[in-house]
Design a binder for these strands. Structure first.
Lengths: 204, 204
DNA sequence: TGTACATCAGTGAACGCGCGTTCACTGATGTAC
DNA sequence: TGTACATCAGTGAACGCGCGTTCACTGATGTAC
């Protein structure tokens, strides 16, 4: 692989910070939380370690930024998947398809990038998911608003619905990311959970 | 705190291995995965580090044993909680109470020992949950068998039911362990998920 | 029951490693005149 | 437009640390006669 070796000076007043966060993300993708380090990131972007201290107070702060970056990436992935759903004449079907697309994207992300998924959810410091994973939370709630508006989900479920949905899909995604499901069973497992959630939200 | 400082020789042909696993568990409880180490465990049980290599090939192997120990602990906690449920004249109510006790125990464990919970679920190496977390899986399935036997859960749901239940409760537990839910909302969140799961299993 | 001996679970010293972080510095950048 | 200068983002060397693991060893344990 060809690596473009930039001189450190290239970063003068440049994009070192965002380059560092991206490099951190890539290290995590390859080797998990363990692989993230000040020195490793510095090496990766062709800079000496102390240079990073101009932009991050500590390793912990770098980690927080990397984690945040991954959450944004995940949210955008979910949005893009939802936006690819084909419109249907049946508007209820369309809403369900979009809801499923969101959930599937969440699980796919965890499956394809288990290490990113893991790091995305550390260090909440007691922020609720809504604040912490803003984009994904918002996308889910748009779906649920539409369900209620179309009379597909009873109003009295509106408050609990996102909690059940999030827990179920998050649990599924976590188990898949941890390889806690034998490969042959994954498909069935996913269908069981997604169908179950959908039923629970729509019924009665 | 009074620490009983044993001489290393006390362990000759003794219980060093189980003492090490227990010490490992306690280190994890206090400081998470990071806190687990050959040297730290050795110090904790009053032995030099190389002594541990008589019992574990590597740090990784120690971790695997600690993780397994925690899973057993968790399963036993669930069982004991279930067994404390008061018998009711209404046998269906009794079964539901036991099912809730299991789920609540799972979540309580994650809430009270977030670091243990985290370590319990690493390194699956593609074993399915059933094999990996044998005891807990078995307990859940006993409940579901009873539901079906009493006609509370339709037979055709028997296969998917544990998957949905496990995902939902595992997701809830994970979020709580990660402090991803604001403290004030935890109670409502838990009720929403547990009620939702119960409904999903029993309905229709 | 007492002694000689084999076993092997421990010790203590040492290894090389990579880490986060600090410090005084240098030299590129952007600005004021 | 050209020069002098302040700023500050980088460098390079060094720090102390704790880690997993190895090695030759020692001395307690349990066994055979």
């Amino acid at each position: 692989m060809l690596t473009l070796q930039r001189k450190g000076s290239d970063y003068h007043h440049g994009a070192l910070k965002s380059a560092a966060i991206l490099a951190g993300r890539n290290l995590v993708e390859g080797g998990g939380l363990q692989a993230l380090g000040i020195r490793r990131v510095a090496t990766q972007i062709g800079v000496t370690a102390p240079a990073l201290y101009r932009h991050f107070a500590s390793l912990e702060e770098l980690l927080a930024e990397v984690s945040c970056y991954i959450r944004a990436e995940m949210g955008e992935f979910m949005m893009s998947r939802r936006n690819q759903v084909k419109k249907s004449r049946d508007i209820k079907k369309y809403e369900i398809d979009k809801f499923r697309a969101i959930g599937d994207a969440y699980v796919d992300f965890a499956d394809k990038h288990p290490q990113l998924f893991e790091v995305a959810f550390i260090h909440h410091q007691n922020q609720s998911i809504g604040e912490y994973n803003e984009l994904a939370w918002q996308i889910l709630n748009e779906s649920l608003d539409n369900f209620v508006a179309l009379g597909m989900t009873p109003k009295q479920k509106r408050e609990t619905a996102p909690l059940l949905a999030w827990s179920s899909v998050h649990g599924l995604a976590t188990l898949i990311a941890n390889r806690a499901i034998a490969p042959a069973e994954v498909k069935f497992f996913r269908a069981a959970v997604m169908d179950g959630v959908q039923d629970a939200l729509l019924k009665k």
